[in-house]
Amino acid sequence: MDNVNLTINGRQVSAPAGSTILDAAVAQGIFIPTFCHDPNLPGVASCRICVVEVKGQKNLTPSCMTAVREGMVVETESPAVVEARKTILELILANHPQDCLTCEKNGDCRLQDYAFIYGVKEGGFTGERHNYAIEEDNPYIIRDMNKCILCGKCVRTCAQVEGRAVIDYAFRGFRTKVAPPMNNTLGDSDCVYCGRCVAVCPVGALLYKPMAGKGRTWEIAREPVTCSFCESGCQFYLNKKGGRVIGVSAGSPGLGRPLCLKGRLGMELLYCDDPVTPQLKKGDVFQEVSWAEALGLKGVIDKIKKLEGE
């Protein structure tokens, strides 16, 4: 494909035609913050944190979706851009709990990182804030919608799972919320707890419950592992603290059924030093079940036991 030439922050840059300003900048090692952008989840340009200044354009433009053009002159940290980013961060923080000290995501949170980079200490605006109940009514995912910044990555990720799309945007304006149907909790929905939404959440709105309280993000090392429960070959991460595996989290999906709960539970049983008791939904409530049942191996194990005569 042809390349186009443009200038970013005074630097002459060449980038493939059709690529975005963000792609071109990242390729040059130029930092641009993003919340809603994810190369695997086609863009929506909704968070506006990645805006940059393009010479000749009245308004700032989201770099994640604006294609490069020959002769384009881009500034990624001009005064207008910095003012916009600071203000957007302040606006998000004005409607976001400032409990970083106890937040599970502390140290692995984009909002925190960008606030640090742009020197934003606090929300700066008073007024109404969201006041949603924290959802912990299922054994796998904690949802704190007060921390949600509505980047929508979880919505797009969930929609990629065949037959799921358990969550979507609901309501509108300031009341917009990511929600399962009827604004129910995840525990009341058709969610299968594959955990992919947790993996893409840039802030602390979605957390993996079995690992809650078990360590700070910087104490935990992640080690990829390939699931062998079916031929899809999904990638999971073993989360290690002090040499012990404390939990397994979703990585990247393989072909076919991606990152299923059974696979992750299997990985936990295999690798965790202290695996939590698995739970499955029976009717409307979660119940603790045996590992054999959780992994759908009850019949097989019973047969093995029988054949091997106990």
Binding site: A170, F171, P181, M182
Partner: peptide, 25 residues
């Protein structure tokens, strides 16, 4: 009612979450 939205969702093969999102928009 919820049941009506569910029937519509399955009738049009649209996720219930999307129907709910449209209705509340």
């Amino acid at each position: 009612p919820k049941e009506v939205m569910q029937q519509i969702s399955s009738g049009l093969s649209i996720p219930f979450s999307k129907t709910f999102g449209v209705v509340t928009f």
